[in-house]
């Protein structure tokens, strides 16, 4: 049985996470964009006057989780794909810098999202904290 190097395993793992992010972005991101940025400002169904983001991130644990999974998965998928595309577009010599910036955006973005979601919905912290 061949043994994969750590780098090869990490590479495979990142592409796996990218695929999961792709599924999440494909199925959940369009409805979030529609509800938050189109239905709410235009007063279309299903949103009337209440801000959907405030509802989603402060109301229930499950909606905070839904927002985290959707946005974190989409961020990973979008940035990961875009940084590899820039390399294919002739920016190969800047590839290392592009990848570093891409991963920095992903890490900071996901950590910030997690922090603010826990801040806005403290009941999530109580669920996560062992009694």
């Amino acid at each position: 049985m061949s043994r994969l190097s750590v780098a090869a395993r990490l590479h495979a793992l990142l592409w796996g996470v990218f695929s999961i992010g792709g599924f999440i972005a494909a199925f959940l991101l369009p409805v979030l964009i529609y509800v938050n940025n189109i239905a709410y400002p235009l007063g279309l169904w299903p949103v009337t006057s209440k801000d959907p983001t405030r509802l989603l991130v402060t109301d229930q644990i499950v909606t905070s989780l839904l927002v985290f999974v959707t946005v974190a998965g989409s961020l990973f998928h979008g940035v990961f794909r875009f940084q590899t595309t820039l390399g294919e577009l002739g920016l190969k010599k800047y590839e290392d810098k592009i990848i570093a910036i891409g991963y920095a955006i992903i890490e900071v973005g996901i950590c910030a999202l997690l922090y603010y979601l826990l801040f806005l919905n403290p009941s999530c912290v109580r669920v996560l904290t062992p009694h």
């Binding site: 979030l32 405030r54 927002v67 946005v71 989409s74 961020l75 973005g109 910030a112 603010y116 806005l120």
Partner: peptide, 19 residues
């Protein structure tokens, strides 16, 4: 995928402002 990333970043910014 650029637009997927842009919306994600904008949404994180929105959640940060709310908090």
């Amino acid at each position: 995928s650029f637009f997927v990333a842009v919306f994600s970043v904008l949404y994180i910014y929105q959640v940060a402002l709310l908090a």
